[in-house]
């Protein structure tokens, strides 16, 4: 009867490990609270939130469209355009990248795949805002900088998702093309590509959803889109305008999520 003994030991070890984890967690939270220099919430918080709320229920409807190109609709379209271009560019670059990174995993030397994975991780660790700031230096302020920033940022994510889906794909139909005498490019064109395409499209749409959110903040640093009028309205305490812009962003993101989700569901 050795089994109960082991269980007994295991139980005791479990209990000890719980205590250890408990102490670690308490220490972490203690550190967070004690060391944190909490600033006091400013006194005007109540009045300001009331103003924003009033702004939200009495939005600046006139701002929705006035033909100046600076209005809400034009800026939202600009935001979508930045996200769209960034995503398309990223998707196009990510495809060869992902095939390259995943193919080499099968070979003995997966150096390329390790380098590739590291590069993708590094890109993902860069917040899109930092990239936007750098590209503003490279191409000047405006939407183009935003497109570049989102493009690069999305490669980090799409490259990873693409190469994972390539590794997980079902290769069985490739064998039949090889067995019929197909060359490598033919196997790719007839089997690999049609098999993998829906997954690639689905991930690209998902990435677009995320890019739309990102594009709405790029304007905060001057890289185009709805973020610029937003920060301007906040700085000038124009609450009705903050209200309408907020409303616009929420609607835009929800509509895009809805459409993209619908298409993705139909793809599989």
């Amino acid at each position: 009867m050795t089994i109960p003994k082991i269980n007994e030991k295991q139980k005791r070890r479990d209990r000890y490990s719980w205590i250890v984890w408990g102490i670690i967690i308490i220490v972490i939270y203690g550190w967070c609270f004690s060391d944190m220099k909490f600033s006091h919430i400013q006194e005007s918080a109540g009045t300001v939130s009331k103003s924003i709320f009033m702004g939200l229920i009495h939005p600046d409807w006139a701002y929705i469209y006035n033909g100046s190109g600076e209005d809400l609709v034009s800026q939202l379209i600009m935001t979508l355009a930045i996200a769209f271009l960034g995503t398309i560019i990223a998707a196009i670059i990510s495809v060869p990248f992902a095939f390259f990174a995943s193919r080499s995993k099968n070979s003995k030397y997966n150096v390329t795949s390790k380098v590739g994975t590291f590069l993708l991780t590094a890109i993902r660790a860069f917040p899109e805002i930092v990239l936007a700031i750098m590209f503003i230096k490279a191409v000047g302020p405006g939407s183009f900088a935003g497109v570049m920033a989102l493009g690069i940022h999305s490669i980090g994510m799409l490259g990873k998702l693409f190469s994972e889906s390539i590794e997980e794909m079902n290769h069985s139909s490739e064998y039949s093309i090889v067995a019929a005498g197909g060359s490598k490019p033919q196997v790719f064109a007839l089997s690999t590509w049609p098999t993998i395409l829906p997954a690639l499209i689905s991930y690209t749409l998902y990435s677009f959803e995320i890019s739309v959110r990102s594009a709405s903040i790029l304007g905060l640093v001057g890289a185009g889109g709805i973020g610029a009028p937003m920060i301007m309205a906040l700085n000038t305490r124009n609450w009705p305008r903050v209200g309408i812009i907020l409303f616009g962003i929420v609607v835009m993101v929800m509509v895009i999520d809805g459409c993209s989700g619908y298409i993705r569901k139909k793809l599989v």
């Binding site: 909490f38 924003i52 929800m254």
Partner: peptide, 19 residues
């Protein structure tokens, strides 16, 4: 729907600057 940086920009106006 709201990205955190946008949320932060609004909340800074309400609660003031700081962690």
């Amino acid at each position: 729907t709201l990205p955190s940086l946008l949320l932060a920009a609004i909340l800074v106006a309400i609660f003031g600057i700081g962690p």
